[in-house]
Design a protein around this nucleic acid. Structure first.
Length: 390
DNA sequence: ATAGGGTTAG
């Protein structure tokens, strides 16, 4: 039994299933562990099969199914499950709020939260985090400001996860002071707290403070992760700190054993390129094209599209640098990749056109603008046909 | 015992 739970938790569903099939005395916990295991590994079909077969379900089972549909983006099915729950508890509400938020329905998530409170269901940490996350998405400061009271009431004002979500919300909604304040009042700051605030400071143009915070994080003995370093490198990029950028990149790989992801490469290309080290930036890409292409942190839910988008970030950074420094040769190479990766992004044509213009290559610049127009024309009639039909 | 949550994205 303990083995099944272990395998299911790790997503090793073939092993878990073997043991489960041989099991004599299954109970609601082993059934639910299987359902949740399938749902978490993205196999919602198998999860649903077992869910339908199982003789007894409990609130954990229902919640796992909602989250499973949420994870694969099927909000309709998640709502169906939610509506069928015989006795809906706070966890089911929390899963539904989260499901809406994660799929871009921030307003629905907030409405769901309000409905829950109207029925006197108590908010818990998870529903609060879902609410905060939704408020962050649409910049609902008013709702965000009411969260402090909710926290008192649900007695999770000391939850690090809730506080981390609040740091992010304040930062994204423009209140860096709010983020700093939330951070200051935390009892136990973890890697996410530091990473969120480092990123926030970097985004707000306060690179030195971001790097100071990184030093303090190390003094406090909190181990940085790959997200932390994206923030740190972003700070270097905004402040034009080439030497420091190189130093942190090496520190990340050599001391902390973190293999650089496409985001890290994009930051480095940006740092080097802005400073005029365009050849070096280009070499960084070509030397690591295997890593950048496949992505080292490819999670199971990372789609092909996501990778291509990320790869675009690297070439996009190079193209931007080529424009600043007027490098036609590498600008053409970067643009060529971008035209393939994201042909619909007209900004890339404009950037290359601008590079040509700076080099007095008017004909080439005109050719780019023409290509851009053709793409715009190809796109819009297609759209209006679709919308005219319904 | 089994579930749901926070930090990267130019």
């Amino acid at each position: 039994m303990t083995d099944i739970l272990g395998y299911a938790k790790k997503g090793m569903m073939v092993n878990a299933r073997e043991l489960f099939d041989d099991m004599v005395e299954r109970n609601v916990v082993s059934w639910t562990a299987m359902v949740a295991g399938y749902a978490n590994s993205g196999d919602i079909t198998s999860a649903k099969e077992l869910f339908d077969e199982m003789p007894v379900r409990n609130s954990v089972t229902w919640t796992a199914m909602i989250a499973g549909y949420g994870k694969c983006g099927d909000v309709i099915k998640a709502v169906e499950v939610f509506d069928q729950i015989p006795a809906c508890d706070h966890s089911a509400w929390a899963a539904m709020i989260t499901c809406y938020g994660h799929n871009g329905y921030a307003r629905e998530a907030i409405e769901m939260y309000k409905r829950m409170r109207k029925l006197n269901v108590k908010a818990d940490e998870v529903s609060l985090v879902g609410l905060i996350s939704a408020c962050t998405q649409i910049g609902d400061v008013e709702m965000g400001n009411s969260i402090a009271d909710q926290m008192e009431e649900s007695s999770c004002n000391q939850s690090p996860v809730v506080s981390n979500a609040l740091i992010h919300m304040h930062a994204k909604c423009g209140s860096i002071d709010g983020a700093l304040n939330e951070f200051k009042n935390m009892f136990e700051k973890d890697v996410v707290s530091y990473s969120a605030l480092i990123t926030a400071l970097a985004d707000h143009g306060r690179a030195n403070e971001a790097l100071e915070l990184f030093s303090r994080m190390q003094k406090d003995g909190v181990e940085p992760n790959q997200v932390t370093f994206v923030g740190v490198l972003n700070a270097c990029s905004h402040a034009g700190l080439v030497h420091e950028g190189r130093k942190y990149f090496e520190m990340m790989t050599n001391i902390h054993g973190i293999s650089p992801s496409t985001e890290h490469f994009a930051c480095m290309v940006d740092i080097l390129g802005r400073a005029g080290h365009i050849e070096e930036a280009y070499k960084l890409i070509t030397d690591n094209v295997g890593i950048i292409d496949t992505g080292v942190n490819s999670s199971s839910r990372a789609s092909q599209g996501l990778h291509r988008l990320r790869e675009g970030g690297v070439w996009g950074a190079l193209l931007g640098a080529c424009r600043v420094h007027g490098n036609v040769e590498l600008g053409e190479i970067a643009a060529k990749h971008l035209f393939e990766i994201e042909p619909e992004n007209t900004g890339n044509y404009l950037l290359l056109a601008s590079i040509y213009t700076s080099a007095n290559r008017w004909d080439d610049a005109a050719r780019m603008r023409k290509m851009m127009c053709e793409i715009g024309i190809q796109k819009s009639p297609g759209r209006s046909w679709v919308s005219n039909k319904d």
